[in-house]
Amino acid sequence: MEVEYLQAELTADERESRPPIVLALGYFDGVHEGHQKVIRTAIAEAEKRDVEAAVLTFHPHPRTVLSKDYEGTDYPELTPLPVKESRIRELGVHRLIVVTFDKTLSSLSPQQFVDGYILPLHVVHAVAGFDFSYGQYGKGNMETLPSHAHGKFATTAVTKWEREGEKVSSTRIRQHIESGELEQASYLLKRPHTVYGVVVEGDKRGREMGFPTANIALDDTYVLPPIGVFCAYVQIDGTDYPAVCSFGYRPTFHDRQPEPLIEAHLLSFHETIYGKRVQMKWLTMLRPEIKFDSTDALVTQMETDKRAAYRYFEIIPGL
Rank of each mutant, 00 (worst) to 15 (best):
M1E: 03
M1N: 03
E2M: 12
L6M: 08
L6I: 08
L10Y: 01
D13K: 14
R15F: 11
E16R: 15
E16N: 12
S17Y: 10
P20F: 02
G30P: 03
G30T: 04
V31L: 07
E33H: 13
Q36R: 14
R40M: 09
A46G: 14
A46D: 11
A46W: 02
K48Y: 11
K48A: 12
R49S: 09
R49G: 05
V51T: 02
V55F: 04
V55T: 10
L56E: 07
T57S: 10
H61G: 06
T73F: 13
T79I: 06
P80S: 07
P82Q: 01
V83W: 00
K84T: 04
G92V: 03
H94E: 15
R95N: 08
I97Y: 00
S106N: 09
S107I: 11
P110Q: 03
Q111E: 15
G116H: 14
L121D: 01
V123C: 11
V127F: 07
G129M: 07
F130V: 06
F132Q: 03
Y134K: 05
K139A: 13
G140Y: 00
T144F: 06
T144L: 13
T144M: 10
L145H: 00
T155W: 10
T155A: 08
T159S: 15
K160Q: 14
E162N: 11
E166S: 09
S169Y: 04
S170T: 12
H176F: 15
I177L: 04
I177V: 11
E181M: 11
L182K: 00
E183Y: 07
E183M: 10
Q184V: 01
Q184P: 01
Q184M: 12
A185L: 02
L189C: 07
L189H: 02
T194L: 08
V195E: 04
V198L: 09
V198N: 09
V199R: 00
V200T: 12
V200A: 10
K204R: 15
G206L: 12
G206C: 12
M209Q: 07
G210V: 10
P212G: 04
P212R: 01
A214G: 03
I216L: 11
A217Q: 15
D219I: 05
F230W: 05
A232Q: 07
A232M: 07
Y233A: 06
Q235L: 11
I236G: 11
Y241G: 12
A243K: 01
A243F: 07
C245M: 15
G248K: 00
Y249R: 04
R250D: 09
P251Y: 08
F253I: 02
Q257T: 14
Q257P: 04
P258T: 12
L261W: 05
I262H: 03
L267P: 08
S268N: 15
E271K: 14
I273F: 01
I273M: 02
I273A: 00
R277K: 13
V278K: 00
Q279N: 12
K281W: 06
K281V: 03
L283Y: 01
L286K: 03
R287E: 05
P288T: 13
E289R: 02
F292E: 06
F292Q: 05
S294D: 10
A297N: 13
A297H: 13
M302F: 09
R307F: 01
R307Y: 06
A309M: 05
F313I: 01
F313E: 03
I315G: 04
